[in-house]
Amino acid sequence: MSTATSAQAPAKSGRGTLYRGNEGQWSWVIHRITGVAIFFFLLVHVLDTSLVRVSPEAYNAVLGTYKNPLMAVGEVGLVAAIVYHAFNGLRIILVDFWKGGTKHHKKMLWAVVALSVVTVGAFAIRHLMLALGGH
């Protein structure tokens, strides 16, 4: 058994460790990150959509710049964030207001993950075929 050698992450003067929470903590972290990401998307979305009031040409020009492979992949990421946030939001409502919610929260999280993977997978296949296929 090793003695006095810090094989593990924190050095002598290093920072404290992360709290080792389980599914509940990490589902919340992802929920918060996706929520903030969606907020920034909506901010940009409101701005670019309102351009149509300035001039339709400016609107078309801005939307034209979105039509490239990088944005197509970005859109898949956006949909993934929205889908997880939506399904997990329903799970949180059930945890709060359904009698068995707190007992089954982990199972519900895996259901959220499974539903999200299926939904985003199906969307990604169709979206990337349309966006990158050059139909």
Partner: peptide
């Protein structure tokens, strides 16, 4: 925010989040 850290931490096994 129902992270369930409290329920898992309780040394008395109280179902805190519930």
């Amino acid at each position: 925010r129902t992270t369930f850290n409290c329920s898992e931490a309780c040394p008395r096994g109280i179902q805190v989040t519930k």
